[in-house]
Design a protein around this nucleic acid. Structure first.
Lengths: 358, 358
DNA sequence: GTGAAAGCGCTAACAC
DNA sequence: GTGTTAGCGCTTTCAC
C-alpha cells in the first residue's frame, strides 16, 4: 500500500519484488536472470510480483554488478548527411541484433568535442566506440587518436575507425574502410573513356582524408591517360550542396572551360546541378556530371546521377561486428569494402568534334 | 606497478586513484564532483593521480549512487528518412547542450519492437523517452501508449510524443506536434488558387496519424472550394519514393486525368517526379507537383519543389526541452509548431483554357 | 578539510 | 532450490 507522493515517483527495487513474492532478492535476481534453477512455484510468484509492480531491473546496477551488456557508441560529424544516416542505420541495426543499445553523438566536425565525447563514452564503459567520417590527418590527429585508442583499450573498450584513415599500423584500433580512391579512379576513368578531358573536380578540404582519397583517385586516373589537372581545375570546398552550387558559379564566372564535372559527393553534385541549370547549361548535353556516394536521391535528380556506390549501411554493420567481435581482433584489424560506379544518365559520350564545349 | 595482463585490461577504480594520491576514496569523489571544499594541495595530488592513471569515473556507478545525469532516448522508425534525421539532430544537439547523452533506437515501424525498446529504456532509467513519427491510431495503440506512459512515469522518466497524435488528453505524456493538417490545407489551397481542380493526392497509409492529418488538410481545402475528391483521386501508399513512383505509373496507366499532384512527402514527390518524367509528362507545364516536409533536396529537384516546410530540427529540440523541463509539465503538455508553404517552381498557374490537361 | 561507514540496486559466491 | 553474505564503483552522511 505504498502511496506515491505526486511528482516523486516510487521506483521499485528488487527488494520490493522480493518482499511481495516472499523470497529473497537473490531469488528474484535468479528468476530474472534466467540462468539458475528455480522452482516453478517460486518463479511464478516472482513473476507475478514483477508484473504487479511493473518492475524492471536497473540496467546500470546490473552492469556494475557484473551482468555486462554494454552500449555501442557512434560518434559522427552530422547525422543529417544521407550517407552518415545510412551508416548510423547499419550501426543501430547490427548493434540491436547483437543485443546492444546505440548511443549516437555528433561533433559538427569539432575535434575537441570529439575528445569530450570519447571521454564520456569511456565513462559509460561503452563496449565500443565507433568514430566515423573523414578528418584532417596530421601529426596531432595521429597523436590524439593514439591516446584515445590507448585509454579506450585500457578501459576495456574498443575503438573502431569507420571510413577514416588509420592512424597507426597495428595500433589498438579496428579500421573499416571503403575503397575511396578506387571509386574515384573508376568514375574518372569512366568519364575519360567517354572522351572527356577537361574535367572540373569539385573537391572537399584537401586535409580531409576522405576528400583527399577521392582526389587521389581522380588524379591517378588522369595520370593513367597521361593527363594532369591544370590550374583551377581542382576546386576545394566541402561536402555540402551549397559548396557545389557556389563552385560552379565561380567556375562559370571565371570562364573556365570543361566538359564534365566530378563532384566529390552527391550532395555537392546536387548543388552543382542546380547551379548549372540556373546558368542555362544543359546536363549532360553540354556538361556531364558525376557524384560520389550514391545516396537514394541520386536517381531522382534530373538527369539521374551517375555516381559511385558506397555500401554505407554495410560499413556500419561491419564496424559493429568488428567492434563487438571476440578476441583482440588483430586478425581483421583492417577491412576495406568495395565501391563501384553506377551509371545513370548524367554523362554523355563526347564525339570527336565537341571536345571544348564550354 | 600493476602489470596488465594482455587482453584483460586493468580498469582503475576510485580506490586506485585514492591510494596513489594518498587520500581516501571520498576525497577523490569530492574533487571529481567539484562541489565540496577540498584543500588546494590535496586537489592537486588527486588530479595528478587521475591524470597518471587516465582515470574516468564509471558513469553507471555514479548514477546508481545518486549523481544523476540521465540519457535521453529517441525512438523512431527509420533514421534514414531526411526528416527523421533532422529531428534526430535536433534531439541530439539539445540533449548535448543540456548535458545529456542520446540513445537512438529504430523500430522499422514495428510496434512490438517499440514496446521492447521502451522497456529497455526504462531499464536504463532514461530521463526521457521520445517517441517519434506517425503511427496507426487505434484503441490498442491508445491502450498501449497509456501503459507505456504510466510505467515510464512510475520509473521517474517521462514520455514525449513527437509529431505523433496524443493518445489521451491530460495523460502522463508531453506532446510536441507540428501543424500537419494546416500545412496540407495551405498547400492544397495554393494549388486551388492557381486554378487546379483535379488534384491527385498521393497519401500514406490512412491509419497512420501523420498521413491522416495531411489527408484531412487536403480534403478540408477542397471542401472550402465546394469540392470533394472523386474515386481514385486519393491514392494510399507509404512515405517512400518508390510509393510515389508506383502510384504515378498506376494513375497514368489507369488514364486518370489530373493537372496537379500533391504528394504527402517530398520523398513521395521525388519518386512521382521521376515517374512523370519517365512517362514524358512535363512538370510543371503539363502537371504541377507539390510535396511535404521541405527536405534539403527539394530545391535540387528539377523543377525545384514547392512544398510545406516543417521545422523538424526545432521539433526535436523542443521535445528534449519539454522532456527535461522541470516540474511535471502539465502547463505545456501540448505544443504545436507551425508549418508554412514554400513556393518554388513545380507549380504552374492554370489558364482558363487548360483545366483538363491530362 | 578529510576519513570511515553506510548504502545505491544489483549479482555472485557460499552456504545449507 | 533458496537465503545469507559480499561485493561491484561510486556518493554521501556523519563524525572529527
Amino acid at each position: 500500500m505504498s502511496r506515491k507522493s505526486p511528482g516523486a515517483a516510487a521506483r521499485h527495487t528488487i527488494r520490493d519484488v522480493a518482499a511481495r513474492a516472499r523470497v529473497s532478492a537473490s531469488t528474484v535476481s535468479r528468476v530474472l536472470g534466467g540462468s539458475y534453477p528455480v522452482s516453478t512455484a517460486t518463479r511464478a510468484r516472482v513473476m507475478r510480483a514483477v508484473r504487479d509492480l511493473d518492475y524492471v531491473a536497473d540496467a546500470r546496477a546490473r552492469a556494475i554488478a557484473g551482468a555486462e551488456t554494454g552500449t555501442v557508441a557512434f560518434v559522427l560529424d552530422d547525422i543529417t548527411g544521407p550517407s552518415f544516416a545510412h551508416m548510423a542505420q547499419g550501426v543501430e541495426r547490427e548493434a540491436a541484433r547483437l543485443g546492444h543499445l546505440s548511443l549516437v553523438c555528433t561533433t559538427d566536425g569539432d575535434p575537441e568535442r570529439e575528445r569530450v565525447l570519447v571521454e564520456l563514452m569511456r565513462a559509460q564503459r561503452a563496449a565500443a566506440v565507433i568514430l566515423v567520417g573523414g578528418v584532417a590527418d596530421s601529426p596531432e590527429y595521429r597523436e590524439r587518436m593514439s591516446r584515445i585508442a590507448r585509454s579506450l583499450a585500457s578501459a576495456g573498450s574498443r575503438l573502431v575507425l569507420c571510413g577514416r584513415a588509420p592512424f597507426q599500423e597495428g595500433g589498438p584500433a579496428v579500421v573499416i574502410e571503403y575503397d575511396n580512391e578506387g571509386g574515384a579512379h573508376a568514375i574518372t576513368s569512366h568519364l575519360l573513356s567517354l572522351g572527356h578531358r577537361r574535367i572540373l573536380f569539385l573537391g572537399g578540404s584537401p586535409a580531409n582524408t576522405t576528400a583527399a582519397g577521392r582526389e587521389r583517385g581522380f588524379r591517378s586516373a588522369l595520370a593513367a591517360y597521361g593527363l594532369a589537372p591544370e590550374r583551377g581545375q581542382v576546386m576545394p570546398g566541402d561536402f555540402t550542396r551549397e559548396s557545389g552550387h557556389r563552385r560552379i558559379q565561380e567556375a562559370l564566372a571565371a570562364g573556365r572551360s570543361f566538359t564534365a564535372v566530378f563532384a566529390t559527393s552527391d550532395m555537392v553534385a546536387s548543388g552543382a546541378l542546380t547551379a548549372l541549370r540556373e546558368a542555362g547549361v544543359a546536363v549532360p548535353d553540354e556538361v556531364s556530371l558525376v557524384g560520389y556516394d550514391d545516396i537514394p536521391f541520386a536517381r531522382d535528380l534530373f538527369p539521374p546521377l551517375t555516381t559511385v556506390h558506397v555500401p554505407y549501411e554495410e560499413l556500419g554493420r561491419t564496424a559493429v561486428r568488428a567492434a563487438l567481435g571476440r578476441g583482440s581482433g588483430t586478425a581483421e584489424a583492417r577491412t576495406t569494402l568495395g565501391t563501384h560506379v553506377v551509371v545513370r544518365a548524367s554523362v554523355r559520350q563526347l564525339g570527336p568534334g565537341d571536345s571544348s564545349d564550354r
